[in-house]
Structures are given as structure tokens and as C-alpha cells.
Design a protein around this nucleic acid. Sequence first.
DNA 1: GCCAACGTTGGC
DNA 2: GCCAACGTTGGC
Length: 654
Amino acid sequence: MNMEPVGTPVPVAEPQGKDVGSSPERIMSEAGNTTDKKPHSSDPLKETPVQDKEEDKPAGLEPPVDWFEPLEEDDNDEVESLAGESEMSVSGAGSEKNHLKVHKFQQPRRKRSSPEEGWDVWPILGDGWKRKEVIRRSGSSIGQKDVYYISPKGDRVRSRVELTSVLEGVDLSTFEYKSGRFIPGGVPPTRVRIRAKRKIPESSSSESSFVERGEGTDTPDSLHRLTPNLGPKTVPSQPTVWLAQSTVVIPTQQYEYPPAEKEIKLPLPSSSRALPLPSINGDISSEENTLVCSRCGISFTGTWYDKQRKRPFCPTCWAASKTKVHPMVRFRKSPGSGGFVPQQPYNEIPDTFEDCLSFQSEVTDSQHLSLKSSDTENFSINVDIDDDDDMSTDDDDDMNWNPEMTSADSLSYELNVRNHQSSMQSNHLDFELNGLPDRVPHTSSDNNNSELDQLSRLDAEKLHADRHGPKCGEEDDDEDDDYYEEEEEEEEDELPIITQIFSMADSQVSSGVDSENQLMKLLQALRSTVMPILWYAILVNGPQLQIIQCSKQSNLTDAIVLIDPGFCYQVTVQKQPLLPTHPLYDKYPAHLTSATEVVNLLLGLEEYVVCQGLPPKDPLLRTGPIILERASTCDFLVKKKVSICSNCRALQGL
DNA sequence: GCCAACGTTGGC
DNA sequence: GCCAACGTTGGC
């Protein structure tokens, strides 16, 4: 069998084909341990339907599919929980809500996968060997990959040292533990750890004391595990680099998954629990968790640490610092601050509009905006003054994160930020509207498939670009000058209190991380700004800023202002883009480069209502969901006093 | 009590 | 600063 993973990004002279297949015999022969070529009879995994999945997977990159299945279930549960929570709260059933919240946060902090899950047969070490990769899904070391092996005898190996101990006599100098392969040229010498015993923590009454655990004794693990006492191996040279950090991993098949090694997740680590938690009123304790990015120097709020060094990075610089970055990070702003704390990844964005809003409700900011109801009929948003749960334990959030992204789980938005930054059309978070309230008029185009919808948007974007000049990302320096002028011409008389004015005036509009950084700054500015009621800004993949009207009671339910890295914007209503000819676009700058401009636009939007479209012609149809029709040229947004756009009205008269 | 998962240390 | 090694926690 060819063990060479397809698509291995780096040429590695690893065991190939039959050589690989013969490796076990060779190894076991050298080890003098060939008597038991079968999995040990007591092997707890013998019933496991193991499969050799390696031929399609780059070593060290293969998605640990099976291991995350439990989390997927959790994710589903989570969504259901949220939905249930919302439904409960619609009737003001706070108790139920609390109950559900309790339920939610009583989810285990860790999820143990089944011991049988995820093991691959690993004949490269000999018959009966199995290997498993586990990517840490939470904690400060999230994204770190642990590799375990199980010997035919059932010995669990979790380090090279232990493996060496088990395979005593086997030359593992060329064996790369993490990838599980033999590397011609060898691998670096094993590090020798002479680890001092941890001192007894003082006054540790709440936890089992060191004495109780038995100082100087081995843990249960080490009793049954291997206690290697091997010195360092000397190997001739550096190993072949398996995964160039800058290499863009070519996804195999349709499977895309977050790069395991550099996934980021920024919970409040256990050691960081002294970090302030937001208070109910939005104040923050004196030790506000405002950090200075160690790279770019900007201030931000959150816990964006290098996973082991705890070095603070702002979200953007984190992304920039890692070639492979977890593409699914959302941000939650700490109350009273202008920064963000990391949130669950985008792969948790529900795929219904309500759920999306529910998702958004977790992106709680100083407004303590909490969406309590996703009931499809009576969707409402209330100010949640008891939001501590939501803001507190990231451990809970941890459980919501499923780093695996199967194709089936891939929602309709693009997940990989970095790979699609230049693709404007992919920036849209395509809300699924399947669960839209019945009372909300749908257009006939709602029935269109996403491709058509996408085309529709593209057309609109093109028209928009025609109208407003170069498409975003195509701006030249003159465009930047325009931004500046627009900023200066702003009127603030009618605005709510603006606590921070953000301008891209002196910022270059460019692609890539810089663009995302600029969007981030705008997002930050928006979150420091008193927004028109129940408008809420989030940063989504693309990157793209989305300012969403969250309230179903608003005239602008399901309206979204989309701002792309070039600060071009587009207004969508119920997923439908306003035609570029919409008069709204004439009133406001073609680019929204400041929080003030955004707020201005939102205030202007508030003067509109959603076109009511055409009522059903056949009253009998009213027994079912009321589906209103609209003219294909519906304006979607009409002045309040109009209620129906001229195009729909004309259609009605036909 | 086992052990998967995560935290922490310290060699490099 | 990285990350292998292994200590520790907590779910089961």
C-alpha cells in the first residue's frame, strides 16, 4: 500500500509504496518483537473498525474526522438549545430561559471521545500498531496536535520517548513521531526532559493536594503508561520539513478543514481567570483586559494570546503571524471597551437566519444586546441584563467549537477567510432564509438556488460598481483621497453620540490582512459608537463587515449593510440586494469609511420600510404561510408612507 | 479508577 | 520562541 499521502505539500522522501509496507516487518524484526503480529488479544481496540485513511491525507494534516463527531452533536445540541431558549423567552419565560442557559453551560468542559474513535492502523510501526491524532479543541493550547500510538499490546504511547521505550531496540532515529513516518535523513534528537517535581501548592485546600496525589509517585497514567528512561537519540541531521508554514495546503477532495497546527482559540485560560469579566452594566473592572498587540502595537481587548507563550496579539496580527490560521474566529467585544475577545468560529454560524441572529446574539457587546427569541413568528430582541453567563466562561464556548469542518457542515458562507479575501462575491454570508418568518414577504427569487442568487448579487454589485465607481479592492490612491474628503464632509448634527470617530483617511486600502485590519478598525469604531437601535456590526468571513438590523420589530427586519474591505457597501433586505439604482445609494457616500458614515446610513435606512409586496391573490392560500410576491424590480425599501414600491404596485395593477 | 484532553515545563 | 515531554484535570 502506498502510504504516501496525496497532496503532501512538501516533498518528502518518505517511505514509499512497498517500502512502507515492508517497514513493519523490518522494524519488528529489528525489535525482535515480531512474534505477535496481530493486535493483541486484549487490545481494546480490536473491535474498532479501523481504516487506513492515510493514503489520501498528508501526514499531520489529515482531519481527525471521527474524533470530532461528538462535538458535532454538541453543536447541534447547542443550536437546539439556543433555539429553544429563544422560543421560551418570547413569552417572557425567563425561568425557562435560565434553565436552558443552565443546561447550556452545564455542558462538559471537555468532551471525551470514545476510546475507540479515530484510530488508524499504522503498519509502518508494525502490525497491530495504531495511531491517532487529536487536535486540542479548547484551552490555551488549542490547535495543538497530540499524537498517540497504541502498540499491539495495548500500550498507549503519547510521546516519542514512550514510543522508543515500547519499540525498544528499534531505531527510531528517522521516525518522525508526529507524522508517524520515517524521514530519510532523520529527525532532530529527542529532547531530554529532566523535569523537577512540582512543588506542593500552598494552601491548596480546594483541590486534591499534592500529598493526596502522592508526591513522588507516578500518576495513574504513568503507572500504566510508559516511563521511558532513554537518553536522547543522536540523529544525523535535521528532518525534512514536512509542512512548510507558508505552504497553502491543497485541500484534498472536497474536504476543507482548519489547519490543525495553527488553529487559534482564545479562551480565558485557566491561568487567566483573573482577567476581568464584564459586568452587567458594561463597566469593566479596573484591570480592564486591554492588551497591546505585541506586533502592531494597537490596543485591543481580549485574550488573543500566542497559544503557549501567552503573547498578546490583536486578532489581525494573530492571523498575520500564522500562515495557517483558524479561519473561523468571531469576535465578541468586551463591554466598556473597544476591543474584542475571540468568539466561536464561524462554522458555528447557524445556517438559518434566525439562528444566525441567535448567533449574533452571542456576540454581545456593550449594548448587552441579547436575542432571546428566534421564534419564527415573534422574533424579538430584548436587552439582557443577566448576561453574565454569556460573557463568562469561554470554557463553555469551547465546547461549542468543532474545529472539524466537513463538507456537510460547511455552511453557505465561505469559511476560509484568507483564501477568499479577494473574492468579493464570496464574502457574503449567505443566510439561509428557510426559517424566515412567514409574515415576512418573500420574493419569488427566494426560491432561486443559491447560484442564481449569487449571480443576482453579482449583477447588483456590478451595477453598484458602475454607479459608484471602481469595485472595492480596485481602488487607486485617488479613492483613498475620496475617503478623506468624505470624512471631512460629514455631518454629525443628527447623529447619536459618537464616542469614537474612525476614519480610513490615512489608511491605505489594500488587500489581504491589511484590509481585514482596516475592517477590524472600523468594526471597533462601530462598536465604540452608539448605533441606531438594534443595529449590530459583526465581522464575517471575507473579510466583510455586516451591520445587521436584529430586531424583527424593526421596519428593517433582516436588513444588512455589507461593507467589504474596500469599504464599498451594499444593503440587502431579506438577502436581496437593493438595486444599485435605489435612491438610497444616492444619498450616501459610495464608501463607508467611518463609523459616522455608517451610522448616517443606518439612520437613513430607518426612514425606510420593507416593501410589502403583493398580497396573495387567492385568499384560500392564506391557510398556509403567507407568501407575498414582489416585482422582480422591487425596491425592497420604500419610504414609510409608501409601504409598497412603485414596481410592485404596478405589478399589482396588472 | 481509567484515560482523553489539556496545561505546563524546560531543552533546544 | 517553539514544541516535545509529561504532569494534571476531569469526564466517564
